[in-house]
Every structure is written in structure tokens, then in C-alpha cells.
Simulated scan of single mutants.
Amino acid sequence: MTASSASESASQSISPAGAIVTLADVKLTLTSTAGPVNILRGIDLSVAPGERIGIVGPSGSGKSTLLAVLGGLEGVSSGQVRVAGADLNKLKEDELALWRRQRIGIVFQAFNLIPTMTALENVMVPMELAGAADAEARAKAALAQVGLAERETHYPAQLSGGEQQRVALARAVAPKPALLLADEPTGNLDGSTGQTIIDLLFGEAARLNSTLILITHDQSLAERCDRVVRIEDGRIRSIEPGKAVLAQAAD
């Protein structure tokens, strides 16, 4: 396959029948005192199981809102939203919460740890809420996987920023999610610490065979993914292959 043919195939949608994510003409309009605000303006996207997707675009383009839609945190005004085996438009709030705990892992820019809980307890919370009998064992394994086996009993205030984000990553991957979402996960970290988090993120997604959808302002980071989706003004402007895919195609 040539680099040009790889680019053409990357811009095409994955067959919805085999997709873990299918968005069809997704629109989201919010009301404000100045009138309606169109956040998403007709998003069409299919993602294959195990694929790594980088989402880039200017601030205010709708990237984080799109991720919130994928995670069932934000409803849409119209359009089809099928994610990890569920039609999100048909789920009630309690059904969405259970689906999210079982099928989705989310890593935010802010660590979002509970300050009164230890690292181990923070990782256990979503699994306990989902009724997992082995929540503690899985949380311990996840913390060990990100290099924090010796920090289980530490509280967030006793951890560095990088360690807190590793706890957040462990919390996201411990349930072995089908889909892993990350919204600027290195935004609050220095360069070397951020690189460690990214390597762990990609490594855990590969180990679990989880689909990864990553928002970043770093084009070089996005290009580590299989495809790079550029969003502007609530619309997908382009979908291109990542550098690794182009390199393989050129061989």
C-alpha cells in the first residue's frame, strides 16, 4: 500500500457493522441569552475496535464536547450515537452510569481524584459502584501496572501531579474498558512527566486491546495514533492517517 492510498483509506469511515463507535449526523445545540449556540454541527465518525484516534483542533471547536458525548456525559440534540454496544440516545441516566462504569474509561486533564480517599480507594470506586466483587484486587493490579504499587495508601495531596495522573489512569483502565477516552491528559504536567503518562496510556490501551480516543493540542502526539481527526467549528474538517500508519504504508 502506498502512502497516498493509506491517506485515502484513513479518511473513509469504518463499516458501522464492525465499529465500536458510530456517530451519524450528530448535532448539539445549547441555548444562551444570546440565542442558540451550535456546538456540534453534524459529526459523522466510525471507529474500529482497538483503533487509536487522535482528535485535534482549535480551542472551542467542540473536541471536549464530542468526547463527553462519546462517554455518555452529554446528550445530543439529534443524530445517532452508538458506542461500545449501546444506543446512548435510548439509555436513561442510571443505565448510562452503569454502562459507563462497565465499558468506558476516562482520563481528564484535571486528575479528578477524591481527596479524602487513598490511591487504592480512588481506583476501586467505579468498580465498587458497578458491583465488581474483585474491585480491590483489580485496583491493586492497575496501580502496579502504572508503577504505583508502593503508593496505594497515599492520599492525592501526598502525590505529585504525575503520580495523581497515574492514579487517574489506573482508575480508568482497572475495569478493562472497551473504550478509553483521554482529554488533554498531559495538560497539567511538565514535558518529561507528560511523556511518561502518554507512554503508559498507549501501553495500557494496547495491553487491554481497548480502543483509544485522545484529545490533544500536540500534533506530534496525535500522529502516534492510527488516524488524526481535525475538528473546527463543530465539524470534522479532515481525517488523516498517523505517521506510524504512513510509515508502514511506505514500506
Rank of each mutant, 00 (worst) to 15 (best):
L120N: 00
D199Y: 01
A141M: 06
I14F: 13
R224P: 02
D251T: 07
A19V: 01
A135W: 00
E163P: 03
V146Y: 05
S192E: 15
A3C: 13
A247P: 12
T2E: 07
E223L: 13
L129G: 01
S192M: 14
L120H: 00
I215R: 06
L201S: 09
I53D: 06
R103H: 13
A6G: 05
L221N: 02
P177Y: 01
T33R: 15
L214Q: 05
G191T: 15
T31M: 04
V56R: 00
A247K: 15
S220Y: 01
G234K: 00
V125R: 07
V123M: 04
I20F: 03
A137H: 09
E136Y: 04
N38Y: 10
V37E: 06
D87G: 07
L113K: 05
T216M: 11
F108V: 04
R138P: 02
P36A: 15
P58C: 07
N188D: 03
I43K: 13
I213C: 00
L200A: 01
K27C: 15
D94M: 12
L113W: 02
N38W: 06
G62R: 15
A244M: 03
V26G: 13
S160W: 11
L66S: 09
V83I: 15
S77I: 12
A6Y: 12
S77C: 08
E163Y: 04
A137F: 02
L169Y: 09
V123W: 01
E8W: 11
S5H: 04
L200I: 08
A249Q: 10
R230Y: 07
G50R: 12
A137M: 08
I14R: 06
